[in-house]
């Protein structure tokens, strides 16, 4: 696999050449800024929860495809309305995306979930430090953990909800403890 490819200076179309000409050069500072932003986003509990939902939905859609199951058929199999299935598969915030729901849904398509509970990595282990332009980053492991948090119900009372979340960090932490 060639990761650097020499091409003739006149190989690009005018449009593409103009695009690259108008793009400022990358700097280490910019890359570090983006690395920090990406890692910060990935550590955000809401982002993690949304990513988990997206992965569940993707797994369900894949199985629906394999089993040639449409949303109506899935709704019937689940004994839910078509609209409810639609809300879940659209990752709608208003959908009741609980572990029970996810577990039932996955079960319907012949899948199950597994949860791993781990500590959040300290910022230093999440690679928020210097990032060299061409330095390959360490592979990550996935952590899935439970977050119990209180959410205020419409009635004004506080209910304890359990959400599924996923966090990621570099293997660095594991390497340090190995």
């Amino acid at each position: 696999m060639k990761t650097e490819i020499e091409i003739p200076d006149d190989a690009l179309s005018d449009e593409l050449k103009a695009l690259f000409d108008s793009t400022p050069a990358l700097t280490v500072e910019k890359e570090k800024e983006l690395a920090d932003a990406v890692r910060t986003a990935q550590q955000d509990p809401i982002f993690q929860a949304e990513l988990m939902k997206a992965r569940v939905v993707e797994a369900v859609l894949e199985e629906m495809d394999t089993q040639q199951l449409n949303r109506n058929q899935l709704a019937k199999k689940w004994n839910k309305s078509r609209q409810y299935v639609g809300r879940i598969l659209d990752e709608n915030r208003k959908a009741n995306f609980t572990l029970e729901t996810v577990s039932e849904l996955l079960h319907l398509v012949g899948k199950r979930m597994e949860i791993q509970i781990r500590d959040l990595a300290p910022a230093s282990a999440c690679g928020t430090g210097e990032v060299h332009l061409t330095e390959p980053l360490a592979p990550t492991c996935q952590q899935i953990f439970w977050l119990n948090h209180a959410s205020r119900a419409k009635s004004g009372t506080v209910n304890l909800k359990t959400n599924l979340q996923m966090a990621e960090h570099d293997n660095e932490r594991e390497a340090l403890t190995a």
């Binding site: 650097e4 020499e6 091409i7 570090k32 983006l34 690395a35 390959p136 592979p139 990550t140 996935q142």
Partner: peptide, 16 residues
């Protein structure tokens, strides 16, 4: 000129 593949900073490759 060179076409270069770059890692998106912060977006690490997961083993899975």
């Amino acid at each position: 000129m060179k076409l270069i593949l770059r890692q998106i900073p912060g977006l690490v490759d997961e083993p899975s």
